[in-house]
Amino acid sequence: MTRIKFRFARHAPLKHISHLDMMRLFQRALRRSGLPLVYSEGYNPHLRFNLALPLPVNVTASEEFGEVYLSETVSPDQFVSTLRAQLPESLDLKSASSEDYKAPSLPSQVVAALYRATLGREENCRAGSSQFRAALDRLMAREEILVQKTKKKKKQAYVNVRPYIIEAYFKESGNESPLELYMLLQAGSSGGVSPFFVIEQLEKELNCDCNNKAFWELHRESLYTDKDQFLQPLSEGM
């Protein structure tokens, strides 16, 4: 049995679909591809396939990952060319590698993700870049940012997501280029925070009186795993 890990980008035309839609899209593409797929045993066999981390609706991405098990040996290059033929052009399959199939699953490896939010130019909030920067400083200085989460039996609970914002900064840019916010956020099974939530909190801190809703374009730059307490891009070794 082979385990293949693959790397792909999601471009704007496909950014409107949800994680479950992405899962179905890949599963159907894999089924059309004729690759020797592996299914789980049992009553409802399902394809042994994973995406590293759900990609939110309205977010594009340059370095996403998935993994799939195959019953026969297929070279990474052959895998890429076979699957590429079944994927829409906005889903850009870039490369693949063979993985040790006893290693932990791809989703369990993910610990953080880097997002870039670009402030659109039109019909937008009129706050200037210095106001945005000051608002971000205030947000990052907070010790607690609470999110209401509905747990089992409809119990409401609050989670402090401030520790999940590992880093957030505006990129130094000239007056001409749009404002870009980078956010390195904890993600994966040990908890995380949505980039949309961070932006929402930033806008609250900004408290601009212009009444124009800001339009942010969101992009996920990369995913990280934990390597001896340091973040290492998931693309390492590919």
């Binding site: 035309p13 409107h16 949800s18």
Partner: peptide
Amino acid sequence: KPARYTGNEW
């Protein structure tokens, strides 16, 4: 569900 309006399906 913005994908209701984007088309471009397989």
